[in-house]
Design a binder for these strands. Structure first.
Length: 442
RNA sequence: GGCUCUAUCGUCUAUCGGUUAGGACACAUCCUUCUCAAGGAUGGAAGCUGGGUUCGAUUCCCAGUAGAGUCACCA
């Protein structure tokens, strides 16, 4: 009786996909893949007022970008005929009835809503994560299952669709626990089997509240636009509320599928830590090839920053090493941290010498460096040989005494990459020009 | 408020009753070619409280407290 596993991710297209719903999708996905089962993506669009195509597109785009491929795609409204059929059968069987009531919007219109005939019993179900949960359904009353015979509501539609799609495992957020008993009641009424339930603890924001758009939860597409890598998001979000029981932190999607186990899912809600995401992202940026990093950088580099291809090649590791996500380039650029690669900086002569040694000495060191560097031919102008050229001198008179003035003369900044890298990016001519210019100003 | 669930470093977590309570992020200090970054090393940092059960509880049970979720003609 070990039938094929079918899981589903059933978002309503009433908002963008954020990390909370994304985590639900991941777990349902991983469980299906791990068990060689089927992963159904079902868009729950029965609420015509709130459902929007743009949100459905956002969910689809996000899932595709993040690599969660589905085997079956369905929109809930496509099953309307079947829902009506079930509703009619339930009424005929005495499990539901039509009730003429005034609309709740105060318009005074009398509507024919469908109510479920509640047997008012205790319902106990087993949850793979929470264990056994028992709830009394009496206080639910005869709850509404359809706005009218043609417009089913959530509880009815979910039960019918899960049944029809052969869903064996319902893996969803903890906010659905209290919905489960009434859905089980409907299952019993229509003769549908009860699937295995697994209710995931919620993902909370830094304020320890449930993630929501209002509280600043970012959509997955926003993370994408900020220059986060999908593999970082997958890894990070999976580790919120789940762990493999080992000390491994970095997982590919395949490793996640292999290692995933519903029983290692945490019971308590977890706070989403953006700093850890940054760490994951940095790890995955490091794993990118030079060309991949370069392409990302090109995408985010403001047009005001103009550098040649070969300059960019040297710049790629310098920049990637200093960022959490690729949009940090924009921040760096607007902070002026990229300007000195393109044009000579204003150099504050008061800060030119190392540890207040004085500009006379600084000038002496720079002059010596100019002589040493001038002897390098253009084709051996790279960070290694530049370093080799000045190193011996710097060793004899003090590294900082020589290196700081050179770096400062080239960048005009307290903080920057090392002088050798800087000189390599700037080229021989520009480097010597900047050094000479500073000397003349002293 | 009713109902349901939860409770280990600031955060994510490990621990199948006996551990110097481990790891990761973040943080601090030091080292590594001047600054920054990266890298390395070291360090500080936790069992909510009170009762039980037990030779022994972070671990099992109960209560309290705290937090979360949910109480729609939304999903």
């Amino acid at each position: 009786m070990n039938s094929q596993v079918v899981t589903r991710f059933a978002p309503s297209p009433t908002g963008n996909l954020h990390s909370g719903s994304y985590r639900t999708a991941i777990f349902a996905y991983l469980y299906a893949r791990k068990n060689k089962g089927t992963f159904v993506l079902r868009i729950e669009d029965t609420d015509k007022e709130r459902s929007k195509k743009e949100y459905e597109d956002n969910i689809l785009d996000s899932l595709a970008w993040l690599g969660l491929d589905h085997d079956v795609f369905v929109r809930q409204t496509e099953n309307a005929t079947r829902h009506t059929e079930v509703l009619e059968k339930m009424i005929a069987d005495g499990h539901a009835y039509i009730s003429k009531e005034a609309a709740k919007d105060g318009s005074g219109i009398i509507k024919e809503i469908v109510r479920f005939k509640n047997p008012n019993s205790d319902v106990t179900f087993h949850d793979e994560i929470k264990g056994d949960v028992t709830m009394n359904t009496a206080d639910l009353g005869d709850f509404v299952i359809a706005k009218n015979i043609h417009e089913p509501l959530f509880h009815l539609a979910v039960v019918v669709d899960d049944f029809d799609e052969g869903v064996t495992h319902v893996i969803r957020g903890e906010d659905h626990v209290s919905n489960t008993p009434r859905q089980i009641l409907i299952q019993r009424a229509i003769g549908a089997p009860t699937p295995v339930y697994a209710h995931l603890p919620l993902v909370l924001g830094t304020d320890k509240q449930k993630l929501s758009k209002r509280k600043g939860a970012l959509a997955m597409t926003e993370y994408r636009d900020l220059g986060y890598l999908p593999q970082a998001l997958l890894n990070m979000v999976t580790m919120v509320g789940w762990n493999p029981g080992t000390e491994q932190e970095l997982f590919t999607k395949e490793q996640l599928i292999e290692a995933f186990d519903l029983h290692q899912v945490q019971k308590s809600p977890a706070v989403f830590n953006p700093e850890k995401l940054d760490w994951f992202n940095r790890e995955y940026i490091k794993q990118l090839s030079h060309d991949e990093q370069k392409n990302y950088i090109k995408k985010y580099l403001p047009e005001t920053i103009t550098v040649t291809e070969s300059q960019l090649d040297v710049l790629v590791p310098v920049i990637t090493e200093r960022m959490n996500c690729f949009s940090d380039i924009v921040t760096m650029a607007s902070a002026g941290e990229l300007n000195y690669y393109m044009s000579a900086p204003e150099v504050d002569l008061a800060k030119l010498s190392w540890k207040g040694e004085g500009n006379d000495l600084a000038k002496q060191h720079i002059t010596e460096a100019i002589t040493l560097l001038a002897s390098l031919s253009s084709h051996e102008w790279n960070a290694e040989s530049i370093k080799a050229a000045v190193w011996a001198y710097a060793e004899t008179v003090g590294r900082g005494n020589v290196l700081w003035p050179i770096r400062f003369a080239l960048s005009g900044r307290d903080k920057s990459p090392d002088p050798f890298t800087l000189a390599a990016i700037l080229g021989k001519e520009e480097t010597l020009a900047r050094l000479t210019h500073v000397c003349t100003k002293i």
